[in-house]
Amino acid sequence: MKPNRTLQVTALGVGFAFLYIPILSLVVYSFNESQLVTVWTHFSTRWYAALAQDDELITAFWLSLRIALLTAFASVFIGTWAGFVLARMGRFRGATLFSGMINAPLVIPEVIQGISLLLLFIEMGKWIGWPERRGFVTIWIGHVMLCMSYVAIIVQSRVRELNPSLEEAALDLGATPFKVFFAITLPLISQALMAGWLLSFTLSIDDLVLSAFLSGPGSTTLPLVVFSRVRLGLNPEMNALATLFIGVVTVGVIGINYFMLRAEKRRLAGLA
Protein backbone atom coordinates (compact mmCIF):
# COMPACT_ATOMS: atom_id res chain seq x y z
CA MET A 1 0.00 0.00 0.00
CA LYS A 2 1.37 3.40 -0.97
CA PRO A 3 2.19 5.90 1.82
CA ASN A 4 -0.44 8.39 0.62
CA ARG A 5 -3.03 5.60 0.50
CA THR A 6 -2.05 4.50 4.01
CA LEU A 7 -2.41 8.06 5.30
CA GLN A 8 -5.82 8.43 3.68
CA VAL A 9 -7.12 5.18 5.14
CA THR A 10 -5.75 6.08 8.57
CA ALA A 11 -7.32 9.53 8.51
CA LEU A 12 -10.64 8.06 7.36
CA GLY A 13 -10.54 5.44 10.11
CA VAL A 14 -9.77 8.01 12.80
CA GLY A 15 -12.58 10.21 11.56
CA PHE A 16 -15.13 7.39 11.58
CA ALA A 17 -13.95 6.25 15.00
CA PHE A 18 -14.29 9.77 16.38
CA LEU A 19 -17.86 9.97 15.04
CA TYR A 20 -19.22 6.51 15.73
CA ILE A 21 -17.49 5.16 18.86
CA PRO A 22 -19.51 7.53 21.14
CA ILE A 23 -22.71 6.45 19.38
CA LEU A 24 -21.80 2.78 19.73
CA SER A 25 -21.02 3.21 23.43
CA LEU A 26 -24.38 4.94 23.94
CA VAL A 27 -26.17 1.99 22.31
CA VAL A 28 -24.24 -0.53 24.43
CA TYR A 29 -24.92 1.28 27.71
CA SER A 30 -28.63 1.53 26.91
CA PHE A 31 -28.72 -2.22 27.76
CA ASN A 32 -26.95 -1.71 31.08
CA GLU A 33 -28.67 -2.75 34.29
CA SER A 34 -26.93 -0.12 36.41
CA GLN A 35 -28.40 3.32 37.03
CA LEU A 36 -24.90 4.73 36.48
CA VAL A 37 -24.50 5.26 32.75
CA THR A 38 -20.72 4.74 32.79
CA VAL A 39 -20.60 1.64 35.02
CA TRP A 40 -21.45 -1.66 33.32
CA THR A 41 -23.04 -4.36 35.46
CA HIS A 42 -24.89 -6.79 33.19
CA PHE A 43 -27.25 -6.90 30.22
CA SER A 44 -30.81 -5.69 30.78
CA THR A 45 -33.68 -4.03 28.94
CA ARG A 46 -35.10 -2.35 32.03
CA TRP A 47 -34.56 1.14 30.66
CA TYR A 48 -36.60 0.40 27.56
CA ALA A 49 -39.42 -0.78 29.80
CA ALA A 50 -39.04 2.38 31.89
CA LEU A 51 -39.12 4.46 28.71
CA ALA A 52 -42.39 2.85 27.66
CA GLN A 53 -43.93 3.94 30.98
CA ASP A 54 -42.63 7.52 30.85
CA ASP A 55 -45.71 9.56 29.94
CA GLU A 56 -43.84 12.87 29.79
CA LEU A 57 -41.32 11.61 27.23
CA ILE A 58 -43.97 9.84 25.16
CA THR A 59 -46.18 12.95 25.05
CA ALA A 60 -43.21 15.12 24.10
CA PHE A 61 -42.18 12.65 21.41
CA TRP A 62 -45.60 12.64 19.72
CA LEU A 63 -45.72 16.43 19.83
CA SER A 64 -42.27 16.70 18.25
CA LEU A 65 -43.17 14.09 15.64
CA ARG A 66 -46.35 15.93 14.58
CA ILE A 67 -44.53 19.25 14.38
CA ALA A 68 -41.64 17.70 12.41
CA LEU A 69 -43.95 16.03 9.87
CA LEU A 70 -45.98 19.19 9.28
CA THR A 71 -42.80 21.26 9.12
CA ALA A 72 -41.24 18.94 6.53
CA PHE A 73 -44.26 19.03 4.22
CA ALA A 74 -44.81 22.78 4.56
CA SER A 75 -41.11 23.54 4.08
CA VAL A 76 -40.93 21.42 0.93
CA PHE A 77 -44.05 23.07 -0.49
CA ILE A 78 -42.90 26.64 0.17
CA GLY A 79 -39.18 26.04 -0.36
CA THR A 80 -39.74 24.34 -3.73
CA TRP A 81 -41.51 27.36 -5.18
CA ALA A 82 -38.95 29.72 -3.66
CA GLY A 83 -36.02 27.71 -5.04
CA PHE A 84 -37.67 27.47 -8.47
CA VAL A 85 -38.17 31.24 -8.56
CA LEU A 86 -34.55 31.87 -7.58
CA ALA A 87 -33.28 29.46 -10.24
CA ARG A 88 -35.55 30.24 -13.20
CA MET A 89 -37.11 33.68 -12.92
CA GLY A 90 -33.89 35.60 -13.54
CA ARG A 91 -33.55 39.18 -12.40
CA PHE A 92 -36.79 40.88 -11.42
CA ARG A 93 -37.68 43.85 -9.29
CA GLY A 94 -37.08 42.86 -5.69
CA ALA A 95 -35.02 39.78 -6.60
CA THR A 96 -32.17 40.80 -4.28
CA LEU A 97 -34.56 41.37 -1.39
CA PHE A 98 -36.35 38.09 -2.09
CA SER A 99 -33.08 36.15 -2.16
CA GLY A 100 -31.88 37.85 1.01
CA MET A 101 -35.09 37.00 2.85
CA ILE A 102 -34.84 33.35 1.78
CA ASN A 103 -31.19 33.09 2.86
CA ALA A 104 -31.51 35.12 6.07
CA PRO A 105 -32.53 32.21 8.36
CA LEU A 106 -29.39 30.35 7.27
CA VAL A 107 -27.03 32.99 8.67
CA ILE A 108 -29.01 34.59 11.51
CA PRO A 109 -28.41 32.80 14.84
CA GLU A 110 -31.40 30.84 16.08
CA VAL A 111 -31.38 32.81 19.32
CA ILE A 112 -32.05 36.00 17.35
CA GLN A 113 -34.75 34.30 15.30
CA GLY A 114 -36.39 32.94 18.45
CA ILE A 115 -36.43 36.33 20.17
CA SER A 116 -37.77 38.03 17.03
CA LEU A 117 -40.61 35.55 16.60
CA LEU A 118 -41.42 35.66 20.29
CA LEU A 119 -41.76 39.45 20.20
CA LEU A 120 -43.80 39.21 17.00
CA PHE A 121 -46.28 36.75 18.50
CA ILE A 122 -46.59 38.81 21.68
CA GLU A 123 -47.41 41.96 19.69
CA MET A 124 -49.83 40.06 17.42
CA GLY A 125 -51.57 38.74 20.51
CA LYS A 126 -52.00 42.30 21.78
CA TRP A 127 -53.27 43.72 18.50
CA ILE A 128 -55.38 40.97 16.93
CA GLY A 129 -55.76 38.48 19.77
CA TRP A 130 -53.81 35.70 18.01
CA PRO A 131 -52.03 33.66 19.12
CA GLU A 132 -53.69 33.52 22.51
CA ARG A 133 -50.76 31.53 23.83
CA ARG A 134 -47.61 29.96 22.50
CA GLY A 135 -47.71 26.29 21.62
CA PHE A 136 -47.99 23.88 18.72
CA VAL A 137 -48.73 26.46 16.01
CA THR A 138 -46.09 28.98 17.03
CA ILE A 139 -43.39 26.28 17.19
CA TRP A 140 -44.47 25.00 13.78
CA ILE A 141 -44.28 28.47 12.22
CA GLY A 142 -40.79 29.00 13.61
CA HIS A 143 -39.57 25.65 12.32
CA VAL A 144 -41.02 26.26 8.84
CA MET A 145 -39.32 29.65 8.69
CA LEU A 146 -35.98 27.98 9.38
CA CYS A 147 -36.34 24.82 7.29
CA MET A 148 -37.82 26.33 4.12
CA SER A 149 -34.55 28.16 3.52
CA TYR A 150 -32.62 24.89 3.41
CA VAL A 151 -35.16 23.38 1.01
CA ALA A 152 -35.03 26.46 -1.24
CA ILE A 153 -31.23 26.27 -1.52
CA ILE A 154 -31.31 22.53 -2.31
CA VAL A 155 -34.05 22.94 -4.92
CA GLN A 156 -32.38 25.99 -6.45
CA SER A 157 -29.13 24.07 -6.96
CA ARG A 158 -30.93 21.09 -8.51
CA VAL A 159 -33.09 23.18 -10.85
CA ARG A 160 -30.05 25.02 -12.18
CA GLU A 161 -28.50 21.69 -13.14
CA LEU A 162 -31.50 20.64 -15.25
CA ASN A 163 -31.38 20.71 -19.02
CA PRO A 164 -33.97 23.36 -20.00
CA SER A 165 -34.42 21.82 -23.45
CA LEU A 166 -36.77 19.18 -21.99
CA GLU A 167 -39.10 21.83 -20.61
CA GLU A 168 -38.82 23.93 -23.76
CA ALA A 169 -39.76 20.94 -25.92
CA ALA A 170 -42.85 20.32 -23.81
CA LEU A 171 -43.84 23.97 -24.09
CA ASP A 172 -43.39 23.83 -27.87
CA LEU A 173 -45.72 20.82 -27.98
CA GLY A 174 -48.46 22.83 -26.30
CA ALA A 175 -48.08 22.01 -22.61
CA THR A 176 -48.85 24.80 -20.15
CA PRO A 177 -46.12 25.97 -17.75
CA PHE A 178 -47.95 24.33 -14.83
CA LYS A 179 -48.22 21.06 -16.75
CA VAL A 180 -44.51 21.20 -17.58
CA PHE A 181 -43.62 21.83 -13.95
CA PHE A 182 -45.68 18.96 -12.54
CA ALA A 183 -45.08 16.45 -15.36
CA ILE A 184 -41.39 17.11 -16.13
CA THR A 185 -39.63 19.38 -13.67
CA LEU A 186 -41.06 17.93 -10.48
CA PRO A 187 -40.06 14.30 -11.23
CA LEU A 188 -36.57 15.44 -12.20
CA ILE A 189 -36.06 17.23 -8.88
CA SER A 190 -37.79 14.57 -6.77
CA GLN A 191 -34.52 13.48 -5.15
CA ALA A 192 -33.81 17.08 -4.10
CA LEU A 193 -37.32 17.28 -2.64
CA MET A 194 -36.74 14.09 -0.69
CA ALA A 195 -33.43 15.42 0.61
CA GLY A 196 -35.09 18.68 1.62
CA TRP A 197 -37.91 16.79 3.35
CA LEU A 198 -35.50 14.66 5.35
CA LEU A 199 -33.36 17.65 6.30
CA SER A 200 -36.41 19.65 7.39
CA PHE A 201 -37.75 16.74 9.44
CA THR A 202 -34.39 16.26 11.15
CA LEU A 203 -33.89 19.95 11.89
CA SER A 204 -37.42 20.26 13.29
CA ILE A 205 -37.43 17.20 15.53
CA ASP A 206 -33.94 18.13 16.80
CA ASP A 207 -34.54 21.86 17.34
CA LEU A 208 -34.04 23.19 20.84
CA VAL A 209 -33.46 26.94 20.63
CA LEU A 210 -36.51 28.02 18.62
CA SER A 211 -38.73 25.60 20.52
CA ALA A 212 -37.56 27.04 23.83
CA PHE A 213 -38.68 30.54 22.79
CA LEU A 214 -41.91 29.56 21.05
CA SER A 215 -43.27 26.86 23.35
CA GLY A 216 -45.75 27.37 26.14
CA PRO A 217 -47.47 25.38 28.90
CA GLY A 218 -48.44 21.93 27.62
CA SER A 219 -46.32 22.17 24.47
CA THR A 220 -42.91 20.93 25.58
CA THR A 221 -41.08 19.19 22.75
CA LEU A 222 -38.83 16.18 23.15
CA PRO A 223 -35.50 18.09 22.91
CA LEU A 224 -36.69 20.42 25.70
CA VAL A 225 -37.59 17.50 27.95
CA VAL A 226 -34.29 15.72 27.26
CA PHE A 227 -32.27 18.90 27.81
CA SER A 228 -34.00 19.65 31.12
CA ARG A 229 -33.33 16.11 32.36
CA VAL A 230 -29.72 15.92 31.20
CA ARG A 231 -28.94 19.12 33.09
CA LEU A 232 -29.77 17.26 36.31
CA GLY A 233 -27.53 14.31 35.40
CA LEU A 234 -27.19 11.54 32.86
CA ASN A 235 -30.01 9.01 32.86
CA PRO A 236 -29.81 5.53 31.24
CA GLU A 237 -33.35 6.10 30.01
CA MET A 238 -31.96 8.77 27.69
CA ASN A 239 -29.59 6.17 26.25
CA ALA A 240 -32.54 3.93 25.44
CA LEU A 241 -34.38 6.81 23.79
CA ALA A 242 -31.33 7.76 21.73
CA THR A 243 -30.82 4.14 20.66
CA LEU A 244 -34.38 3.92 19.38
CA PHE A 245 -33.88 7.13 17.40
CA ILE A 246 -30.61 5.83 15.95
CA GLY A 247 -32.31 2.60 14.89
CA VAL A 248 -35.26 4.35 13.25
CA VAL A 249 -33.03 6.85 11.45
CA THR A 250 -30.68 4.11 10.23
CA VAL A 251 -33.52 2.03 8.82
CA GLY A 252 -35.11 5.11 7.26
CA VAL A 253 -31.91 6.29 5.59
CA ILE A 254 -31.11 2.84 4.22
CA GLY A 255 -34.65 2.42 2.90
CA ILE A 256 -34.76 5.84 1.27
CA ASN A 257 -31.35 5.39 -0.33
CA TYR A 258 -32.47 2.03 -1.70
CA PHE A 259 -35.59 3.45 -3.31
CA MET A 260 -33.71 6.50 -4.63
CA LEU A 261 -31.09 4.26 -6.26
CA ARG A 262 -33.81 2.13 -7.81
CA ALA A 263 -35.54 5.23 -9.16
CA GLU A 264 -32.26 6.52 -10.59
CA LYS A 265 -31.56 3.18 -12.27
CA ARG A 266 -35.04 3.16 -13.82
CA ARG A 267 -34.54 6.72 -15.06
CA LEU A 268 -31.18 5.89 -16.62
CA ALA A 269 -32.62 2.74 -18.18
CA GLY A 270 -35.43 4.81 -19.70
CA LEU A 271 -32.93 7.24 -21.23
CA ALA A 272 -30.83 4.43 -22.73
Rank of each mutant, 00 (worst) to 15 (best):
H143M: 04
V151C: 10
L146P: 00
W127M: 07
A175Q: 11
W81I: 15
S116M: 03
T71P: 13
F136Q: 08
P109A: 06
A152P: 03
A82M: 15
F73N: 01
C147K: 11
M145Q: 04
R91Y: 14
G90A: 08
L117Y: 05
F77A: 14
L118S: 12
A87Q: 14
A152M: 03
I112E: 00
S157I: 09
V111K: 03
G129W: 02
F84R: 12
T71C: 15
W140P: 00
N103I: 14
R160I: 01
I154P: 05
I115G: 08
W127Y: 10
A74E: 03
L173P: 01
L86I: 14
G90H: 07
E123T: 10
E123R: 11
R134V: 01
S165H: 03
F98R: 03
G142Q: 04
L69D: 13
R91N: 15
C147L: 13
A95T: 06
A170C: 08
A104H: 03
E110K: 00
I122V: 10
P109R: 10
A170Y: 06
I128V: 15
V151M: 09
F73M: 07
R160A: 05
F136P: 04
I122E: 03
H143E: 05
V137R: 00
F136A: 05
R134Y: 01
V144T: 04
E132W: 00
G79C: 07
W62Y: 14
Q113W: 01
W130L: 12
L120E: 04
N103C: 11
R88E: 07
I112T: 04
S149M: 04
L120P: 01
I122N: 04
D172S: 13
R134Q: 02
I115D: 03
I102V: 15
M89K: 13
I154T: 12
P105A: 10
W62R: 11
L70E: 00
L146I: 01
V111T: 13
A72G: 10
V144F: 02
Q156C: 12
I108H: 03
F73K: 02
E161I: 09
A152L: 06
S165L: 07
A82K: 09
G114F: 01
S99N: 12
M124V: 06
Y150S: 08
F121I: 08
G114A: 05
S149F: 04
G135D: 14
P105F: 13
W81P: 09
W127C: 01
G90L: 09
G100N: 11
G135I: 14
T71S: 15
L146G: 00
E123K: 12
T71K: 14
P131G: 07
S165D: 08
R160D: 02
S64E: 08
A170E: 01
I108L: 10
K126H: 15
H143R: 01
M89F: 12
T80M: 09
R66P: 05
I78R: 10
I153K: 14
T138R: 04
R93S: 13
L117R: 02
G83S: 14
A104Y: 02
P109W: 06
Q156L: 05
L106S: 06
A170G: 11
K126C: 09
V76G: 07
F98C: 05
V144N: 02
G135A: 13
P109V: 07
S165R: 10
L65E: 11
I153N: 11
I153M: 12
T138E: 03
F136T: 09
L106W: 10
S165C: 00
I108N: 03
R134P: 00
